[in-house]
Amino acid sequence: MKVIFLKDVKGKGKKGEIKNVPDGYARNFLFKKGLAIEATPANLKELE
């Protein structure tokens, strides 16, 4: 799953980066803790 990092996550990504991460990791950790959001076309446009 492609995500946009909202905060730095040690060993995974830095704020503003767009990366592919495992689906479970994104849903169960990154999204729940507010560390990242899904890289949807709308979210990507908002980032620019």
Rank of each mutant, 00 (worst) to 15 (best):
M1D: 02
M1I: 15
M1N: 03
M1E: 02
K2S: 11
K2R: 15
K2T: 14
K2D: 10
K2G: 06
K2P: 09
K2V: 14
V3K: 01
V3E: 00
V3M: 02
V3H: 00
V3Y: 00
V3G: 01
I4T: 02
I4D: 01
F5D: 01
F5A: 01
F5W: 02
F5T: 00
F5P: 00
L6M: 07
L6I: 12
L6A: 02
L6H: 01
L6F: 03
L6N: 02
L6D: 00
K7L: 10
K7A: 13
K7T: 12
K7W: 11
K7M: 12
D8G: 05
D8V: 04
D8I: 03
D8P: 05
D8L: 04
D8Q: 05
V9E: 01
V9G: 01
V9H: 04
V9S: 02
V9F: 04
V9R: 01
K10W: 14
K10Y: 14
K10F: 14
K10Q: 12
K10S: 10
K10I: 12
G11Q: 05
G11P: 04
K12P: 01
K12W: 15
K12I: 15
K12Q: 15
K12D: 06
K12F: 15
K12L: 15
G13V: 06
G13A: 13
G13Q: 03
G13S: 05
G13E: 02
G13K: 01
G13P: 00
G13D: 02
K14I: 09
K14W: 10
K14F: 12
K14A: 09
K14T: 09
K14R: 13
K14N: 10
K15D: 02
K15I: 09
K15H: 06
G16E: 02
G16D: 05
G16I: 01
G16V: 00
G16L: 05
E17R: 03
E17A: 05
E17Y: 03
E17D: 12
E17G: 03
I18N: 02
I18G: 01
I18M: 07
I18H: 03
I18P: 01
I18E: 04
K19A: 10
K19V: 11
K19F: 05
K19L: 10
K19H: 11
K19Y: 07
K19N: 04
N20I: 15
N20W: 15
N20T: 15
N20L: 15
N20M: 15
N20S: 13
V21N: 00
V21K: 00
V21S: 02
V21R: 00
V21H: 02
V21T: 03
P22Q: 09
P22A: 10
P22R: 09
P22M: 08
P22N: 10
P22G: 08
P22V: 06
P22D: 10
P22F: 07
D23P: 13
D23M: 15
D23R: 14
D23V: 15
D23G: 12
D23I: 15
D23S: 15
G24W: 15
G24P: 10
G24A: 14
G24R: 12
G24N: 13
Y25W: 11
Y25S: 03
Y25I: 07
Y25D: 04
Y25E: 05
Y25F: 10
A26K: 02
A26V: 07
A26W: 08
A26E: 06
A26D: 04
R27D: 03
R27Y: 12
R27F: 10
R27T: 09
R27I: 14
R27L: 12
R27Q: 09
N28G: 11
N28D: 13
N28A: 09
N28L: 11
N28Y: 14
N28T: 08
N28V: 06
N28S: 09
N28Q: 10
N28I: 07
F29N: 05
F29W: 11
F29K: 05
F29T: 07
F29Q: 06
F29M: 06
F29G: 02
F29S: 04
L30N: 00
L30W: 02
L30F: 02
L30A: 01
L30V: 00
L30Y: 03
L30M: 03
L30D: 01
F31M: 08
F31W: 02
F31T: 03
F31A: 02
F31G: 01
F31Q: 02
K32Y: 07
K32T: 10
K32R: 13
K32S: 09
K32V: 14
K32Q: 09
K32A: 12
K32E: 08
K32P: 15
K33S: 09
K33N: 15
K33R: 14
K33L: 15
K33I: 08
K33D: 06
K33V: 09
K33T: 09
G34T: 03
G34R: 11
G34L: 08
G34A: 07
G34D: 05
L35M: 08
L35H: 04
L35I: 06
L35A: 04
L35W: 13
L35Y: 13
A36L: 01
A36Y: 00
A36P: 00
A36N: 00
I37H: 04
I37W: 05
I37T: 06
I37P: 00
I37F: 04
I37V: 13
I37L: 10
E38K: 10
E38Q: 11
E38V: 07
E38Y: 07
E38I: 08
E38N: 04
E38D: 04
E38G: 04
E38F: 05
A39P: 03
A39Y: 14
A39F: 12
A39H: 06
A39S: 04
A39G: 05
T40E: 05
T40R: 05
T40S: 10
T40D: 05
T40H: 06
T40F: 05
T40A: 06
P41F: 10
P41I: 12
P41K: 10
P41H: 11
P41V: 12
P41T: 11
P41E: 14
A42H: 12
A42G: 12
A42K: 12
A42F: 09
A42T: 10
A42D: 15
A42I: 10
N43M: 11
L44T: 07
L44W: 07
L44V: 11
L44S: 06
K45R: 13
K45T: 09
K45L: 13
K45H: 11
K45D: 09
E46Q: 14
E46V: 14
E46W: 15
E46N: 13
L47N: 08
L47D: 06
L47A: 09
L47H: 12
L47I: 12
E48D: 11
E48L: 15
E48I: 14
E48Y: 12
E48S: 13
